[in-house]
Simulated assay, not measured.
Amino acid sequence: MTMTVSQIRDEMADREAIRDCLMRYSRGIDRMDPEVLASAYWPGAMDYHTGFTGTVEQFIEWALPRLAAMEQAMHMIGNVLIRIDGDTAKVESYLWSVSVLPGDDARQVMVVGRYLDKFEKRNDEWRIAERLVVHDWFQEGPADNDWSAGPFGMTGLLRGTTVPKDASVDWLELRV
């Protein structure tokens, strides 16, 4: 299961393209950007994801309204293990997600798990062809973040939001 330096050197561009795809997924889901989110998957890709089973197109229709109902959402990707075999790759990526469900009884939900992805390379581009989400741990409790007080007592901070209003849209020149 270990890889040689030569194997990794020969795969560097492919590995970086796979990582870029993983980052696009996180950005697309957190900024609720259906175009960026779809760009992480091949059309018709299958997703088995936290109570959902279907194609990526169905997943986007299912996920975005649920995310829109949340006050905040953030997905982080940690350890990434990539095994490339020709034009396919098996990838395990650790995930950490935190969300706030608003309301009178606002709840904060943290989920830790892994994305088990089958990637395919087509026309010199890597995307997800199949995704299975494995849940390893979660924590749920009252949301105790008070933006009127701010972190460390600092108010008026620039807050993340969704496209097209998020500051990163202009910063990264994503909508030219």
Results as ranks from 00 to 15, higher is better:
108 Q>T: 02
73 A>L: 06
46 M>E: 13
78 G>T: 14
77 I>H: 11
43 P>K: 05
40 A>W: 01
143 A>P: 01
67 L>K: 08
2 T>F: 06
138 F>G: 12
53 T>H: 02
81 L>H: 02
145 N>W: 09
122 R>M: 01
78 G>E: 10
53 T>C: 00
54 G>T: 00
172 L>A: 10
163 V>N: 14
50 T>V: 00
92 E>R: 04
31 R>D: 05
166 D>K: 11
59 F>Q: 12
86 G>Y: 00
101 L>P: 02
156 G>C: 10
159 R>M: 09
2 T>H: 10
111 V>C: 03
3 M>V: 04
158 L>M: 14
111 V>H: 03
148 S>P: 07
126 W>H: 02
20 D>R: 06
66 R>V: 06
116 L>I: 02
61 E>T: 15
20 D>N: 11
64 L>P: 08
78 G>C: 06
149 A>N: 10
129 A>Y: 10
155 T>N: 07
5 V>S: 10
38 A>E: 07
81 L>N: 04
80 V>F: 03
109 V>Y: 00
4 T>I: 04
10 D>P: 07
161 T>N: 15
97 S>H: 07
68 A>N: 12
141 G>H: 13
48 Y>H: 14
33 D>W: 08
13 A>H: 14
65 P>A: 04
135 H>F: 02
67 L>N: 11
83 R>V: 15
6 S>A: 15
149 A>F: 12
100 V>G: 05
68 A>K: 15
98 V>N: 09
65 P>V: 07
99 S>F: 05
131 R>Q: 14
66 R>G: 10
